[in-house]
Design a protein around this nucleic acid. Sequence first.
DNA 1: GTGTTGACCACAG
DNA 2: GCTGTGGCCAACA
Length: 121
Amino acid sequence: MIKNKSQFYENCYKILRKVPKGKVTTYRDIARALRSKAYRAVGTAMNKNPYSPLRTAMGKDGYCLPQNGSAPTVPCHRVINSDGKVGKFAHGTPKKIRMLKKESIEIENGKIDLKKYGFRF
DNA sequence: GTGTTGACCACAG
DNA sequence: GCTGTGGCCAACA
């Protein structure tokens, strides 16, 4: 067994991977799913996200490159603020918005309707 | 071990 | 409706 120091991060990625395409989740929800209030830590995890879809070749079908044995890609761009705001992005906020738009997600003045696209665990 | 930082949230004004 | 302040937790210097 390997004891990862940053298991918290791994958990964040794991949960985020569960988010289907065309839906978004919030940092708050992730923290809740982890039974923690580390909203900020979640954000930090995304920032340091080693499984950035932009890093790997963006799949035309979806960024979530499946199992196939390696690199569990994490759609960090599907994570937004609890207010529905897009929040920030390691590669630039506009980029994030662009990606979300590609996911058929409507963005209103930098805000997303969590009622429609908010994914519940 | 202490202090600062951060892709945040909730509440008050 | 927006702005300001405090608080939360985890990682880093």
